[in-house]
Design a protein around this nucleic acid. Structure first.
Length: 477
RNA sequence: GCCUCAGUAGCUCAGUUGGUUAGAGCGGCGGACUGUUAAUCCGUAGGUCAAAGGUUCGAGCCCUUUCUGAGGCGCCA
């Protein structure tokens, strides 16, 4: 059995004078004497002092960048100034030598694009190890938040036979011969002969199934992979991403907004408490990268200060109509700064959302009561006959992190809306039955997991907060 | 899918109005160095200038097409 101590724990309460065993990867090898180790337990490193005379020449020769080593030695107060304690090596073993002549990483700043191409090694860097520790923390906090409040984690299907989830292009799932698929007499592909006996796709949302759970268990949430086959080439979209979708019975749009705000603040606060060192590193990293930028292009606040500010202040809340009014009265609009026109009934563009969040309110904003024609069929119709009880949570830098709504629980209204929007009622008979047989007011939302991780870590590109990103023309690893 | 910008050594980049043999830092390799902190010092190798085609006496540089990447937009979470 292998026994070792983790660097994070050694540094929390250093057992000075004791013999310790550490294993990790070499971050630096200086002066033929000082070896800096990191083992992934945290962003901290441990300096090991190597007396060359104590070890075989061949062993010392193999110490190099990102070689993997095992060290046994005495933890002592450091003579140097860069660290409080260090290990005086008494045993030294190379667990995995590193062939530096062909190793793609270097002990220097590397571009995010280059590291993305070498994703098998990028988690060994300070930036990505911190990002993925925080990503874990957010995932854990999601489950903890809901569990502590009596929600049930519902696993909705990844392969779906629904043809009408209405959230974008889907990836087909099929075992049919792609070159010679069976065909019907009419010449169309005969999905009746496919694995499931019908056409199936990867899910774009677990919401409709989550509603089934909410109308029995009261409060449920889903947290799973989601797939969109859209040709989206942006720093905020992935073809495969993780989405969190709470769904609650006996709730209206106000309950929904309160939940969304409380939930997101909890996630951020959890990371502030649990990963201060990682966030401090990521904060510094952003400040370093902004040194050469014009003041206007820099963030108004550092990363950690931004996170603290979001947790400490109420989100602004406006209706779509009010938001439009604010935009039309803005100097930016009057000076013709907006590329897209503003008119009641069209969706807010990214530039409009950014103005509301970053210029007008200077904090997260929840916009509610959107025109019904730009929103999904299942959203509850308001009494004005024009809007639905939808809400979007907009964040600085990343835009929409949450989209949600109160669901239409009145069967006649739902049927009418489905007809108007050409959603086939026969394919969603089970969904309509939730209204026929003991329905109730209910609501929910979808939170883009990678987007909130992006916000918390300050990473500019969503592809750098998921270990192995999938996007158009990108499915490596 | 659309718009803009970019692609030169392993990485990050410089390369003048088109003109002789293609430049640096870092990294690699060889050597020195027992208190370093992006360690330092000496030496050394390393290039189909993204690909194809074109203009020209002559192209890393100009033109066309393709590929790849980044930023922005759309679609959305």
């Amino acid at each position: 059995m292998i026994v070792r101590q983790e660097i994070k724990h050694l540094l929390q309460q250093p057992p000075v004078g004791e013999l310790v065993t550490v294993m990790g990867w070499v971050r630096a090898w200086r002066g033929n004497r000082f070896m800096v180790l990191n083992d992934g337990s945290g962003p901290q490193t441990l300096q090991v002092v190597v007396d060359q005379d104590k070890f075989p020449e061949e062993t010392v020769r193999q110490i190099g960048f990102h070689a993997c080593v095992r060290v046994v030695g005495t933890l002592t107060a450091s003579q140097g100034s860069g660290q409080s304690v260090e290990v005086m090596a008494e045993q030294l073993e190379i667990l995995g030598a590193n062939d530096l002549s062909s190793y793609p990483l270097q002990p220097k700043k590397q571009t995010m694009e280059y590291l993305r191409e070498n994703a098998q090694f990028r988690m060994r860097t300070n930036t990505f190890s911190s990002v993925f520790r925080v990503r874990h923390g957010v995932a854990y906090a999601v489950n903890k938040y809901f569990h502590d409040r009596g929600y049930y984690y519902l696993h909705t299907p990844i392969i779906t036979g629904n043809d009408a989830e209405g959230a974008g292009e889907m990836f087909r799932v099929s075992t049919l011969d792609p070159i010679n698929p069976p065909r019907t007499e009419a010449g169309e592909i005969d999905y009746n002969q496919d694995f499931f006996g019908k056409a199936t796709n990867l899910t774009v949302s677990g919401q409709l199934q989550a509603e089934i759970g909410a109308l029995a268990l009261g409060k449920v949430y889903t947290f799973g992979p989601t797939f969109r086959a859209e040709n989206s080439n942006t720093s905020r979209h992935l073809a495969e991403f993780w989405m969190i979708e709470p769904e609650i019975a006996f709730a209206d749009i106000d309950n929904d907004m309160n939940l969304a705000e409380d939930f997101v603040k909890y996630l951020i606060n959890f990371c502030l408490e649990q990963y201060p060192d990682d966030l401090a590193y990521l904060d510094q990293r952003i400040q370093d990268s902004e040194k050469n930028m014009k003041t206007a292009d820099r963030r108004p606040m550092g990363l950690v200060d931004t996170l603290k500010f979001v947790v400490a202040n109420d989100f602004a809340r406006v209706t779509y109509t009010e938001a439009l009014d604010i935009l039309m009265r803005s100097k930016a609009y009057k000076k013709g700064k907006f590329e897209f026109p503003l008119s009641w009934g069209t969706d807010l563009q990214a530039e409009h959302e950014r103005y509301l969040v970053e210029k007008h309110f200077e904090r997260p904003v929840i916009v509610r009561d959107y025109p019904k024609d730009i929103k999904a069929f299942y959203m509850r119709q308001n009494d004005d006959g024009k809007t639905v009880a939808a809400m979007d949570v907009l964040f600085p830098y990343i835009g929409e992190v949450i989209g949600g709504s109160q669901r239409e629980e009145r069967e006649d209204k739902l049927r009418q809306r489905m007809q108007e929007m050409d959603v086939h009622a026969d394919e969603l008979a089970w969904y309509l039955q939730l209204r026929t047989f003991g329905g109730c007011p209910h609501a929910g939302f979808g939170l883009g997991f990678e987007r909130i991780v992006q916000f918390i870590t300050g990473m500019g590109n969503i592809r750098d907060v998921i270990p192995f990103p999938r996007a158009p023309r990108l499915a490596d690893f």
